[in-house]
Computed example of a mutant assay.
Amino acid sequence: MLKIGITGGMGVGKTIVCRMFAILGTPVYDADTRAKWVMNNDAALKQELTNAFGIEAYTQAGELNRAYLSKTAFNDPQKLALLNSLVHPHVGNDFTKWVEANQSAPYVLKEAALMFESESWRQMDEIIVVTAPMDVRIKRILQRDPHRTQTEIEIIISKQLSEEEKIARAQHIIYNDDQQLLIPQVLKLHEQFLAKV
């Protein structure tokens, strides 16, 4: 079974590309969604996060206190690095179990915004980067997240690995620039991956 990573910066359209692969029958692992699940359900990780960030990391009901963790970690590079160093290994283990449960598929996709930053690209056989021009990305994010300002979006994007670096490290590129059709690009890659297994 091939393990294909799919990544790209905020607003490039990774989710829509993954939906297209899913329609073709490909199992898709959404690392961000699974990370939230693991942070709420993995007892060992919950203990590690509580030890690192205090009892405020979880509500009295035992749910992840996302607002507190965001406020605490995202403005402090050292605390953010600590948070990622705790969460990413548990998500990696969760992905390994998920792959085992999807052994019958010719290939699987793992969608992760921080594929390179988290080192999870090392678990993959090949990487797809979805890319789009910055002005298109900002317009999409403003429509999707009306609570964010353009300045906030630019700050978040500036903290991510550059688009150029991601493209340089990938084996495949999908252009979601509102000029080129997505479906033919996805179908071409789907056929390439099936031909390899």
Rank of each mutant, 00 (worst) to 15 (best):
S70L: 04
S85F: 09
S85C: 04
S85Q: 13
I155S: 15
L109E: 02
A57G: 04
D145E: 07
T59Y: 02
N84T: 12
R66V: 05
T7C: 02
L86S: 03
T15N: 14
N51V: 10
H172W: 04
K139E: 13
K36L: 05
C18R: 00
Q78T: 02
E100H: 14
T15P: 05
R140K: 13
Y107F: 14
G25T: 06
L109S: 02
A195W: 05
V17S: 00
K46A: 02
G92H: 03
H88Y: 15
A44N: 08
A112D: 09
G11P: 04
L82N: 07
R66N: 10
H90F: 11
D145K: 15
K166C: 09
Y107W: 01
T149A: 05
L114A: 14
R66L: 07
K159C: 06
Q192E: 10
A43H: 07
R34T: 12
D76N: 15
K166H: 08
Q160R: 04
M134A: 12
V136N: 10
Q143H: 13
N65V: 00
L2D: 03
D76G: 06
S120L: 08
P184A: 06
V186Y: 00
L83A: 04
A101N: 12
M20W: 01
H90R: 15
V99Q: 10
K188Q: 12
V38P: 02
G8A: 09
L82A: 05
A81K: 05
K46T: 03
I183N: 12
R137V: 02
V12S: 00
R19I: 08
T33D: 14
A22C: 12
S120T: 14
I141P: 03
K110M: 11
N65K: 00
E48Y: 08
T26K: 06
P106T: 07
M1V: 07
A105E: 04
L181Q: 14
G13W: 01
V91K: 01
T7V: 04
I141V: 15
S85K: 13
N102C: 02
T26H: 06
R148D: 10
M39G: 05
F53H: 08
V12I: 05
I167T: 13
Q179M: 10
L114D: 09
E126Q: 15
K159N: 13
V28W: 12
E163W: 01
A44I: 03
E126G: 11
I16S: 11
T151Q: 14
Q171E: 15
G92T: 08
H190A: 11
L109R: 03
L142M: 13
P106Y: 13
L2T: 06
K139Q: 14
G92N: 04
W37F: 10
K79E: 00
K36Y: 09
Y68K: 00
L182M: 09
R140C: 08
A195M: 06
W37Q: 11
A43V: 08
L80T: 09
F116W: 03
L161A: 11
K188A: 12
Q47D: 11
R19L: 13
A195V: 04
M1A: 03
S70I: 08
P106G: 11
T72I: 10
I174S: 04
A22V: 01
Q180N: 14
